[in-house]
């Protein structure tokens, strides 16, 4: 065809407008998602210390901050009965320890451990708690125990 792609595009626009728009839109969205994935990837590589959240278990936190699980375990005063599989929110609920106090002690212990090993403690990320004071609630709360 001598007229080339410009004519083809014009024809497409005239006869298959919605199909053309949908095609361009899905391609654009694909590109946007690829870029977003790249941004997340760069962020992920630079942030290895994950802000402490209530769902995390003792050993998950220890892994994220690259310390011995025992340091986290002892920081929140858990008994010496082997590893504890519970997440912080459950420890808070069942043992009556406020979540924010626990995370503060954990971060202090991690900082102390890194200082003792001569690593730069740097700035540890602030905990990200949905409900910092999860202590034994004075108000009657519906129990979600199974």
């Amino acid at each position: 065809m001598a007229a080339g792609p410009a004519v083809t595009l014009k024809r497409l626009w005239r006869h298959n407008r919605w199909l053309t728009i949908a095609f361009a839109l899905t391609l654009t969205l694909a590109l946007v998602f690829i870029i977003r994935a790249g941004v997340f990837f760069v962020y992920w590589q630079q942030h290895r210390d994950e802000p402490i959240e209530g769902w995390m278990t003792v050993r998950y936190i220890a892994r994220s901050y690259r310390v011995d699980p025992k340091i986290v375990h002892d920081a929140i005063g858990l008994p010496e009965t082997g590893p504890d599989r519970r997440p912080l929110v459950r420890i808070a609920r069942e043992d009556g320890k406020p979540l924010d106090a626990m995370t503060t002690r954990i971060l202090e212990a991690i900082r102390a451990d890194r200082a003792a090993r001569g690593q730069p403690g740097g700035t540890l990320p602030a905990p990200d708690l949905s409900n910092p004071g999860t202590a034994p609630a004075p108000s009657p709360q519906p129990s979600r125990q199974p």
Binding site: A37, F40, F41, H47, R48, S64
Partner: peptide, 14 residues
């Protein structure tokens, strides 16, 4: 094993 929330962001977008 760690910082899975950001990892999930990468994979979700991909």
């Amino acid at each position: 094993g760690s910082n899975i929330e950001t990892l999930s962001g990468i994979l979700g977008n991909l």
